[in-house]
């Protein structure tokens, strides 16, 4: 039972980290960025490359993968979203162009690494397993949980307490008013994408460390769960995404334990609908579904 709670918590922390980057862009810019899953996959493959092929130590790979994710985010904003700004169908067109950007990214990853799963060498990361009160926890899982929490709290701090965060919240409230007040909206938009994508790439890296391999389909696999987490937590809510990620991870683990593994999705998504019946705006969402 305790083991199942731990299993759920670790899985949930990756869901949460994936979802938080996704919801950040929606909360501030109202853009649905469907390239997020592709950036997650790219981050995963890049970390296999840096660690297993280039032989970089893991502590150096972490910031590099985040940096790469951030740069891809800037590119994404510049190519897929900025040219559409101001069009009446900006949001819908952006959704489509982000799908296209994601597809291109995956094609590039495939061209570079091929279609096979890329496994991470075990020497790169100590394969330590700790057993506490009958619960087996690997070092990779602990690192994942720790880093996910640090990154999520870090993001919350950036949004709440830094000048960039204040500017972000102003843009979220009303972009035109923010511009009138002298805020460089373009720069805030670009920074939001960079932050979001850095977190997405990082989530991909943690996933790879956790399961031992990168797979071209890993983004698709987490995307649906990620959407569920965002809706459950309340569109655009950072705290909501965090809480909902952990809840969904736990719900899946407990369903497998008590009901059966075939019912995992039924119960997890049933829970989603049940919560939405009671709170249509999600756990932490506001009615207009727009906050940070």
């Amino acid at each position: 039972m305790l083991q199942q709670l731990a299993n759920g918590l670790f899985a949930g922390s990756i869901y949460a980290l994936f979802a938080i980057g996704f919801t950040l862009v929606f909360g501030i810019l109202r853009h649905l960025n469907l390239a997020h899953a592709a950036i997650f996959t790219t981050g995963g493959f890049l970390s296999v490359d840096l660690i297993s092929r280039q032989g970089l130590p893991i502590w150096l790979a972490f910031p590099l993968v985040m940096l790469a994710g951030g740069l891809i985010g800037l590119l994404l904003e510049r190519i897929a979203f900025r040219p559409l700004a101001g069009r009446p169908d900006e949001h819908f067109a952006g959704l489509i162009s982000s799908v296209a950007f994601g597809g291109m990214l995956i094609a590039l990853v495939q061209a570079r690494y091929g279609t096979e799963q890329q496994s991470i060498s075990s020497e790169a990361f100590p394969n330590e397993v700790y057993t506490v009160a009958g619960v087996s926890i690997s070092l990779a899982q602990l690192t994942t949980l720790g880093l996910a929490l640090v990154l999520m709290l870090g993001l919350a701090w950036v949004v709440a307490a830094t000048p960039l965060g204040r500017a972000m919240r102003a843009v979220a409230e009303n972009a035109r008013a923010a511009r009138v007040l002298g805020i460089n909206v373009e720069r805030v938009t670009a920074s939001t994408y960079a932050l979001s994508s850095a977190l997405g790439a990082m989530a991909g890296m943690l996933m790879v460390l956790n399961v031992g391999q990168g797979d071209l389909g890993m983004g698709l696999a987490i995307e649906l769960t990620g959407f569920a987490v965002i809706i459950l937590g309340g569109m655009g809510s950072l705290w909501g995404a965090m809480a909902a990620g952990l809840i969904l991870g736990l719900a899946e683990a407990l369903t497998i334990h008590h009901i059966g593994s075939s019912w995992k999705d039924v119960v997890a998504f049933g829970l989603l609908f049940a919560i939405l019946l009671v709170r249509p705006q999600g756990l932490f969402g506001t009615i207009k579904a727009r906050e940070v």
Partner: peptide, 17 residues
């Protein structure tokens, strides 16, 4: 007797059982 889906990469809950 446990199941999972094609795209899954996390099996710890089933394996714990």
């Amino acid at each position: 007797d446990e199941t999972f889906q094609t795209a899954d990469t996390e099996f710890r809950s089933q394996l714990t059982k």
